[in-house]
Design a binder for these strands. Structure first.
Lengths: 295, 295
DNA sequence: AAACATTCATAAATTTAAGCAATGAATAAA
DNA sequence: TTTATTCATTGCTTAAATTTATGAATGTTT
């Protein structure tokens, strides 16, 4: 018979503890099982490894000489399989990512495609929720990563900037503003305006800028999703603003996008992680993918 | 579950042959058994090692990366246990033997030659030291076996008698005693006498016998080695006594040996081993060789 | 010395797993 | 489509590992 890894571990435990009882306990084995393991191992190698009476237990000269070799074997064995398991752990598992819808819609798909290619076994869950909820989700550990605008404050979170986003103006194709290369806030305020619902950071920002410029746009409608606002603008109801990263999806909806100036409002978009909570393998991988893509 | 050495071998065979059928044959296993082994190993490490359809079999990237590691593990494993088995097979290893010089010179050479023939790989170390040191060496474990006279006491040691030795008289060729068939202590004491140095067991015994017979030999010289005494006697300086087992080497030195009587002093010569310390393989072998040779 | 306590070995029974033969499912080639 | 090949699955058998209970040996204590 051949020696097994179990028997090697049995040998090492027995050599370490110097007692069948203690060693077997450390191996989560009964004492007779350890007895048998050692007996079989000795038979396999063709000689005694321990001198044992009921009162004394000691390595034989051969056993003593083999001990460091056995230690080495076990260490290398464990090392090798730990590495292998770790590698696989990176390739599977699951990953929760929270992102603001605009990013989820406009930026995530191609990134996730690349991620999938690299790590096909990972079960990805995307929460596309508003900025405030993104931060909550990361803070509570419901999501390992969160992508959104950089807020005024984010206690307990770590922020890695990805790129700078700025507001753009979105107007219907037939609007008089559609002929402008660039649009100013003042011009926007003269048109029927469609805003985000109260409570959102975009709404707060819009209100603040308008107030600073002493503008009072005729608020025509409110919506909570940019896609809805996009549809409204496309159908000629009014004008609005959106993050630049929505440009592509807005244009697909048939909306005209123009740079928005006077003032230019810009904001960092980045990844949030929880402080003092190291990322899982997959999360680490996606985090790196994000940073490299925009870095 | 943990990965076993069998599974590692299965992995290696499958990677080498690229076919379950061939690999399983090389492992003396049925194809389903190999299938199960690989399946279980993959489950244990947490991911696929082979991509397999019924038509194609190939290592996954992880499997490919693990392959050299696995080879290394197997090689070291086999190497370690081959070494251990070889040692037990008495093909290698080492053995320390302590013996009193008279025995080492006169009896050991032919025995060791036979031992060498049987176990050519064993590294033999012979300590030829005086009786007291022989016992110490065995007691301390510096030598596994010790051959010497049986002393009055030997705590902690086990004694196996080999043969009975007796003192003989050694006289120069030109001595008047050389014509005697047998020599008595009284006759010896009338000649210039060469003794062992004080502190040795032989000197103590000589003194004791002489005193008991009320003899007072003219002590001409002392020496600590029998070979030296032999040379002195051979050159005609005086007479002395020696253990019978030195007869051959004494005669080679040109000394006349005669039985020594009145009284005959005899003593067991035997092998000492440490109590409660079973012998290593080689030591056991030599011990048996000694017992059989003289038994 | 005798009784005791401790520790390893052994025995019998049980649970676990390893293994095989037969069969099924998938796929490239004819 | 058919066929041949190859790996996976199933059901069953056998071997191995493990456990509980018990026995034997040997220092220690009284």
């Amino acid at each position: 018979m051949n020696v097994s890894i179990k028997q090697l571990r049995a040998f090492l435990a027995l050599a370490e503890y110097g007692s069948f009882a203690e060693a077997s306990e450390s191996l989560h084995l009964s004492q007779p099982a350890l007895s048998a393991a050692i007996r079989n191992m000795e038979q396999a190698v063709g000689g005694k490894l321990f001198n044992r009476t009921t009162r004394h237990l000691a390595l034989t000269p051969e056993g003593r000489q083999f001990l460091p070799v056995a230690r080495q074997l076990q260490a290398e064995w464990d090392r090798a399989f730990d590495d292998l398991s770790r590698r696989f752990a990176l390739l599977q598992g699951h990953l929760r990512l929270a992102a603001m819808p605009s990013f989820a819609i406009n930026c995530l798909p191609p990134l996730l495609q690349r991620f999938r290619q690299q790590y096909p076994g990972i079960n990805l869950v995307i929460d596309d929720i508003v900025m405030e909820l993104v931060l909550d989700a990361v803070r509570d550990g419901r999501a390992e990563l969160g992508v959104t605008f950089e807020p005024e404050q984010y206690d307990g979170l770590h922020f890695t900037p990805l790129f700078e986003d700025r507001f753009i103006a979105i107007v219907p194709a037939g609007s008089p503003l559609a002929s402008c290369q660039r649009i100013h806030w003042q011009q926007l305020a003269e048109q029927p305006f469609i805003t985000m619902n109260r409570g959102s950071w975009m709404r707060a920002t819009t209100d603040r800028v308008m107030a600073a410029l002493a503008l009072h746009p005729a608020s025509l409608a409110e919506a909570s999703q940019l896609a809805t606002i996009g549809r409204m603008v496309a159908s000629g109801l009014g004008v609005s603003i959106a993050p630049a990263l929505c440009q592509t999806s807005m244009q697909l909806q048939g909306v005209q996008c123009r740079p928005l100036e006077g003032p230019v409002i810009q904001r960092q978009v980045g990844v949030f992680t929880r402080k003092r909570h190291p990322l899982s393998g997959p999360a680490e991988a996606l985090h790196q993918l994000l940073c490299r893509h925009y870095g």
